[in-house]
């Protein structure tokens, strides 16, 4: 066979490759979809903006830090309102063992606060 005849024959064969059967294409497609990684779509719920309270808590350092700050604030307020005459009792224990000290009034009356200014 001459070279040109062989080239013609090869060109003819190249133009007519064996066609895959529908069954093969079905199997290949099924494999492709079964092995395909899931789409990396991001849902709106996953990126929802946190609320004001959550952002405030995060700003202060989280729930534990917020609890500490709150406790300190409450203690500070309470300390500010304590009757100054009772501070010595708490700090030094003075008067606790005296017979006349039957009751200690930690919080001052409104009149006391008014007179103190």
């Amino acid at each position: 066979m001459q070279t040109s005849d062989l080239d013609d024959l090869l060109a003819l064969a190249a133009m007519h490759p064996p066609a895959p059967s529908p069954a093969l294409m079905d199997r290949v497609t099924a494999d492709a979809l079964a092995l395909q990684p899931q789409s990396l779509t991001v849902s709106r719920a996953a990126v929802a903006r946190p609320g004001l309270w959550s952002r405030l808590v995060d700003l202060l350092g989280g729930p534990a830090a917020l609890a500490g700050v709150t406790s300190a604030a409450l203690f500070g307020i309470a300390l500010g309102y304590l009757d100054p005459t009772t501070v010595d009792i708490l700090a030094l224990g003075q008067g606790v063992d005296q017979a006349e000290t039957e009751a200690v009034d930690f919080f001052p009356s409104v009149d006391f606060l008014m007179t103190e200014g």
């Binding site: 066609a19 290949v28 497609t29 492709a32 899931q38």
Partner: peptide, 16 residues
């Protein structure tokens, strides 16, 4: 990346 038409296109291009 999970693109289904890409799976079909590749199958139809490469398999034959």
């Amino acid at each position: 990346n999970g693109d289904r038409p890409a799976a079909l296109a590749l199958a139809q291009r490469i398999t034959p």
